[in-house]
Amino acid sequence: MNELLLTVLTLSVLGAVLAVILYFVAQKFKVYEDPRIDEVEKMLPGANCGGCGFAGCRAMSEALVNRDNIASLNCPVAGGETMKSIAEFLGKAAGAQTPKVATMRCGGTCAKRPKVNTYNGPKSCAVVNSFYIGDTGCAYGCIGYGDCVAACKFDALKLNPETGLVEVDADKCTACGACVKACPKALIELRKKWPKNRAIYVACRSKNRGAVVAKVCKAGCIGCGKCAKACQFEAITIDSYLAYIDPDKCKLCRKCVNECPTGAIHIENMERLPKEPKVVAPKAEVKVETAKNE
């Protein structure tokens, strides 16, 4: 009986003494952490995707709490509303953020961009890109092994086996930018997200001459410049035989879409403008002046 008592007593006293020591040690080495960091972290979506540029949601909330000016910080997953409420909670000013969406800019489907060689190496876009251009003739187009799909944490990208191209589900896409980094051909761009997921963009990245593009892909931009002429808002620029629509200037008027001879300008969730019957401009009569008069 005595032994039992002794054991219990010893352990109890030991526990009490250690508890006291631990208490003082904890007081001595206490690291102060702003309790708001935890609060802010709870408000963030917790996807840890890195889309904000920080290592994860925790690092982002630390930055939000510790920095004075948080206007440049944005969680693309949570969106503007959440950022506003976080800013309100912290008593800081939120920056104006335009929602964005990943856009895959290649229209070279299997039908329009035929395969010219057989590749039987590892199915990875990065590996293919490390030694050659891929199994189609286009050096700029989608390789189609889905490195971006693997990088997406939100299941927003899908490889369509029929077209051989990657498709973006705009509702699921959070614009974290993981796919942008994963694509070795830099095909994916984060573009302004319009209501109802409307979009107009040039689905081609080929900087080759028009003749070269036309040889390898029937859906490529040949740099003819018709779209740039049709655009009233100066949103379209042509650089190295490639048109680019500036999402900040574009007003979704759709005039360029009908102009494109190859269909490289894609529109989404919108109808095309009705095709106007082509008005054949009467040929101006040119008077041929000869040098005889002189």
């Binding site: 190496g121 590892p122 990875s124 990065a126 590996v127 490390s130």
Partner: peptide, 12 residues
């Protein structure tokens, strides 16, 4: 296994 393919990528 496509060993050298991935190593080349890593090397680059």
């Amino acid at each position: 296994l496509p060993l050298v393919d991935y190593i080349r990528l890593a090397k680059q």
